[in-house]
C-alpha cells in the first residue's frame, strides 16, 4: 500500500510499513466494537446469574408444578401442589407465622436500629470501638448465635430463668421455647438482635450524609430535637430506610436457619415458617415438588414488596 505523507513533497511517494492483520490488531478491533465489548463484559455476569439464579428458579417452578419426589423425576401436575399446600393446616400456620415473624422483627429492627444509629451519630469516647463491636451479632454465623440463644432459653437450664428466679421476679420457669407464643416471640427477639446492626450501620451511613448545617438552621428557627428529626432527618433518610427495610423483609420472610436451630418449627408447628416447612416436606419427606411449591408461595409476596419499593423510589426521584 502506498500513500502520500501529509506535508510531504508533492509527487514523492513514501513507503509506510505494511499493517498486517496481527492478533493484537484483531483484539483491538474487537475491543473497539462496543457491541463485542459489551458482550465480553456482561457475559460472565449473565452466565453467573443464569447458573446460580435463573436455573434454580426455573427448576423450582418446574418442581412445584410436578410430582417429583426424591429419586423420581415425576410428571406435570399443574397447580395440584399449590392447592394441596393451601388446604394444609400446617402450611396455613406456617404462612401466618411468616407474616407475623417478618412484620414484628422488621418493626423492632427498624425502631431499635434507628435509635442506635442516632446514638452512634453523636461524638463520644471510644466511638469507633463501639461502632465496630455493634456489628458482632451480624458477623457471627446465625447457626452459632442461635445455638447460644437456645441454651439461654433452654427449658431446663435457662440462664435467663435462673437469673429471673434469683432476682425474685418469677417463681416458676418461663416456658421460653415450650409454649408456642413465647417461642415465636423468642425467635422474633433473636432475629431483631441479629438484624438490628445492619439497620443501624446503614442508617448511620445515611445520617452522615445529612449536612449538619441543615440541623443548625432548623435549631436556629427554634425546632426542638423531635421536630428536627421529623422535618430534617427523616425526609432525607427515607430512601436509605426503604432500601434497608426491603432487604430486611426479604431476608426475614425467607428465614430458615434461626427457626431450624431454635425450635425446628415446634412446639406443635407453632413456629414453622414457610422455609422450614418447605424444607421439612422437601428434604425429610422427599416430596420435592410439594416442598418447592411451598417455598414458591414466598415469591409473589416478595415480588410485591420489591415492586412497591421500586415504585416509591422512582416517584421520589421524580419529585
Amino acid at each position: 500500500m502506498k500513500s502520500s505523507a501529509a506535508g510531504g513533497a508533492t509527487g514523492v511517494e513514501v513507503a509506510l510499513p505494511h499493517p498486517s492483520p496481527t492478533r493484537a490488531g484483531r483484539l483491538t478491533r474487537v475491543l473497539d466494537s462496543e457491541r463485542a465489548l459489551a458482550f465480553m463484559l456482561l457475559g460472565p455476569a449473565v452466565i453467573l446469574l443464569g447458573v446460580f439464579i435463573a436455573y434454580p428458579f426455573v427448576m423450582g417452578i418446574w418442581l412445584a408444578l410436578s410430582s417429583t419426589s426424591v429419586g423420581n423425576v415425576g410428571e406435570y401436575v399443574g397447580l395440584r401442589n399449590f392447592v394441596k399446600a393451601w388446604n394444609d393446616s400446617i402450611f396455613q400456620t406456617a404462612f401466618r407465622n411468616t407474616f407475623v415473624y417478618t412484620f414484628w422483627a422488621t418493626i423492632f429492627k427498624l425502631a431499635l436500629g434507628m435509635w442506635l444509629a442516632l446514638l452512634l451519630n453523636r461524638h463520644f469516647r471510644l466511638k469507633r470501638i463501639v461502632r465496630a463491636s455493634m456489628l458482632l451479632p451480624f458477623i457471627i454465623p446465625t447457626v452459632l448465635s442461635t445455638f447460644a440463644w437456645r441454651w439461654m432459653f433452654d427449658p431446663t437450664f435457662s440462664v435467663l430463668n435462673w437469673t429471673l428466679y434469683q432476682m425474685g421476679l418469677i417463681v416458676t420457669k418461663l416456658p421460653f421455647l415450650s409454649d408456642g407464643t413465647y417461642a415465636m416471640w423468642c425467635a422474633i427477639a433473636i432475629n431483631t438482635w441479629r438484624g438490628m446492626p445492619f439497620f443501624a450501620i446503614t442508617l448511620l451511613a445515611g445520617l452522615q450524609t445529612i449536612s449538619p448545617e441543615l440541623h443548625e438552621a432548623a435549631a436556629l428557627d427554634g425546632a426542638n430535637a423531635w421536630r428536627r428529626f421529623r422535618h430534617v432527618t427523616w425526609p432525607l433518610l427515607k430512601p436509605v430506610t426503604l432500601v434497608v427495610v426491603v432487604f430486611s423483609v426479604i431476608q426475614t420472610f425467607s428465614d430458615f436457619q434461626l427457626i431450624y436451630v431454635l425450635t425446628g418449627g415446634g412446639p406443635a408447628n407453632s413456629t414453622h415458617l414457610l422455609a422450614t416447612y418447605a424444607y421439612q416436606l422437601g428434604v425429610a419427606s422427599g416430596l420435592l415438588g410439594e416442598g418447592a411449591a411451598i417455598s414458591l408461595f414466598m415469591f409473589p409476596v416478595l415480588l410485591l414488596v420489591v415492586w412497591l419499593q421500586l415504585r416509591y423510589l422512582r416517584r421520589m426521584e421524580g419529585a
Binding site: D154, F157, K173, P175, L177, A183, G264, P267
Partner: peptide
Amino acid sequence: DEGGLAWDDTNNNRAFHAGE
C-alpha cells in the same frame, strides 16, 4: 416437666444426669 415440648433428643439425657 412441661418444658418437654421444646426438648430434642439430648435434653432428657442432660436433665436426667443433672438430677432434674
